Amino acid sequence: MSGHRHGRHGCDGDHNHDETPEMGLQYSLYSKIDLGNLECLNEKCEGSGKDVFKAWEDRFDFEKYVESDADEELLFNIPFTGNVKLKGVVVVGREMDSHPSKMKLYKNRPHMTFDDVGAPGDQEFDLHPDNTGTLEYSTKVVKFSSVHHLTLYFPTNFGSETTKVYYIGLRGEFYEAHRHGVTICTYEARPNISDHKTNAFDSVSHEVQ
């Protein structure tokens, strides 16, 4: 999938976007990530994978980044605190050689490892070097309309022995998980049954009298 264009619109759903005040709101899904259970495989410094999921206005904070360890591969297992409709992904690097060159997305496959990434991704992209955060890779929204777990796999870069990522932006919509349904059923079961029984006995006794 070579021959990508750097113009207004490119291949595979990637396009440049203009900077607007609303960008911070659009890329706010980082706040809906369950960071305590986020996994980054092959990170050189433990826990550094979490640092790349941050506010849009902090995307140029190059003090914090994740670097791969044994080779150029990086794999992120990203659980959300609810359901997400994922619309786009931004990947910011700094040095061209260490910038990831490919990205594979997997939907709702928790705890993936490097043994699992041979399977085709739900969507795959050829990446361009981007140190400004202006290039977005648009997802197939129908396919990524109900995501509670997202895996991002970066298999290669542009020539370096290790891969560095400084920012990953996720654009989309968030929906609270519907966990209250069971609670409602539990509450309704006991008092309603007892209420009905009491009313039935009362009505019978009144009729007998």
Rank of each mutant, 00 (worst) to 15 (best):
G121E: 09
Q123A: 09
Q123S: 11
E124N: 06
E124A: 08
E124R: 06
F125C: 02
L127K: 01
H128G: 00
H128P: 00
P129D: 01
T132G: 03
T134D: 12
L135K: 08
E136Y: 03
E136R: 08
E136M: 13
E136V: 12
E136S: 08
E136C: 13
Y137A: 01
T139V: 08
K140Q: 07
K140P: 00
V141T: 15
V142M: 05
V142N: 10
K143P: 00
K143D: 11
S145Y: 01
S145G: 00
S146N: 09
S146D: 06
S146G: 00
V147Q: 01
V147E: 01
H149R: 00
H149N: 07
L150I: 03
L150A: 03
T151S: 13
T151I: 06
L152V: 05
P155E: 04
P155Q: 04
T156H: 10
F158G: 05
F158W: 13
G159T: 10
G159V: 09
T162W: 04
T162A: 11
T162L: 02
T163A: 12
T163P: 06
T163F: 14
K164W: 14
K164Y: 14
K164P: 09
V165M: 05
V165T: 12
V165Q: 03
Y166C: 09
Y166F: 15
Y167K: 07
I168F: 09
G169C: 06
G169A: 07
L170S: 02
L170P: 05
G172E: 06
G172W: 08
G172D: 04
E173N: 03
F174H: 09
F174S: 01
Y175Q: 10
Y175N: 08
Y175K: 11
A177K: 10
A177I: 12
R179K: 06
R179L: 06
H180R: 04
H180D: 09
H180L: 05
G181E: 13
V182W: 04
T183C: 13
T183D: 13
I184H: 10
I184C: 05
I184D: 10
T186W: 13
Y187K: 07
Y187V: 14
E188F: 15
A189P: 01
R190H: 08
P191G: 00
P191S: 01
N192S: 14
S194I: 14
D195F: 14
H196T: 05
K197M: 10
T198K: 14
T198A: 13
N199V: 13
N199I: 13
N199L: 15
A200V: 01
A200F: 14
F201L: 15
F201H: 10
F201Y: 10
D202P: 00
S203C: 10
